[in-house]
Design a protein around this nucleic acid. Structure first.
Lengths: 234, 234
DNA sequence: ATTAAAACATGATAATTATCATCTTAAAAA
DNA sequence: TTTTTAAGATGATAATTATCATGTTTTAAT
């Protein structure tokens, strides 16, 4: 009994519960949820699921950062989306009833909870607000994906790099030394903007020389946000 | 009364009702739908809605072909998606409660019905199968968008052209003379694959010389589907 | 029917970006 | 600690793609 209470509290106070579609769940539903979830710790570099795998549920990101990516024929890893704590992972494939279209890997050590599909479908059918939230979350992803698709075509690599740096700053914030909190390798950064690693490094170098950013070891500090924005715009 | 029956039948037998999320609606719901819809005829080149507009509902494509696109700063029109009869338009913005992110224009004369948001939300809240269908449809769009995003980065313009020609063939079929049924200008085709119009024309010319396709005036006939597939793959 | 405008086409050239090679530095493993 | 490996950096060069110029054909408008 004591045990049950503790688990319930855990889900109830979890950041995912506060930020994701799960915020629509009632007290009773959260208790049900707490009983059916499984918690995993995933080390940096490890996969949560791989392309083609059948996941049969969603993952709640409690802590850490992950990337959704797809490996190309020539060995390059295109990053489609970064996920951080509070977000759900694998909603799309679950709803579409399909194996994962992308691979999910940890970029920083993660803690995730797995919620089986049956549970989600129950919530979806019995809780209108939850289904609407879930729907809106997928819609948000769709909008972002479409806009990124457009940016990929209409903007140069330089513009996309500026844009991505600003995004990373907005979404993940900065450390005390003002460098970006997300620690991406140059290769991963290249994977987000869709370019060759060398091109990415070269442009970072250029931005550094222009005073737009400062390279602190492998970390990146944004120095001139206004100029970066102007660059990204047009 | 006679009038009401006719309108109901119209919705009931409509292709959109058969192919879209609306297939989950009950007889009673279809009657409600028929009463609240408005039908529009849109001529080739005209807009159904423009970026930034608040639509407050969805459009059912009864007939014709449309494009969802976004104009870039340099005047180029990036096409995000083509829609054909049986599909819904504007679901995303309606659910997200946002003005349209893209402009919808007719590529071939269209007939569309407008369904007000209130009606859709009612169905969404009272009909689980409908909400699931709608959800799956958005998920399908998301998957496609992500895959296209990846293709945009990982494939060359030549590969994307081959891929797009095959897609157009699959999705819209061919006329009696075996040319593609969708009549896109070279500029529009370029807008889909995300390249300059001249590059698109040049590559079509190359494909023609290689015997992969045949240019019949402005129309395109696929001659060697196998070779096109191989080209698109890698 | 004639004129104007739009769409298609192709060459020349410039700009962008990828690839290969090599080197340095940092991190991990022995 | 030493050694090995991975990540970062930069130059040289090639490949891809965009842009500009110009001409032709098709379509639409007068």
């Amino acid at each position: 009994m004591q045990q049950t209470t503790i688990v319930m509290n855990k889900c109830d106070q979890c950041i995912v519960r506060q930020l994701s579609s799960l915020k629509a769940l009632s007290k009773e539903e959260v208790i049900k949820l707490a009983g059916s979830k499984t918690t995993y710790k995933i080390k940096k570099g490890e996969a949560i699921f791989e392309e083609g795998e059948v996941t049969n549920g969603v993952f709640c990101v409690k802590d850490g950062v992950g990337k959704l990516s797809k490996l190309s024929a020539n060995g390059k890893d295109q990053i489609v989306k970064l996920v951080k704590s509070g977000e759900l992972l694998g909603q799309r494939s679950m709803i579409s009833n399909e194996p994962a279209n992308l691979t999910a890997k940890a970029i920083a050590d993660m803690e995730v909870c797995f919620i089986p599909k049956s549970e989600i479908i129950n919530f979806f059918n019995s809780n209108n607000q939850f289904s609407l939230n879930l729907m809106q979350s997928v819609c948000e992803d769709l909008k972002e994906s479409e806009n990124e698709k457009i940016a990929l075509v209409q903007k140069t690599v330089k513009q996309r790099l500026a844009e991505t740096l600003l995004h990373l700053h907005d979404e993940f914030g900065e450390d005390k030394d003002q460098t970006l909190k997300v620690q991406l390798t140059r290769e991963e950064l290249a994977g987000i903007i869709g370019t060759a690693t060398e091109s990415c490094i070269r442009l970072l170098s250029d931005f550094n020389k222009l005073g737009l950013i400062e390279l602190v070891g492998k970390k990146i500090k944004l120095k001139d946000v206004r100029a970066l924005k102007k660059l990204a715009e047009n």
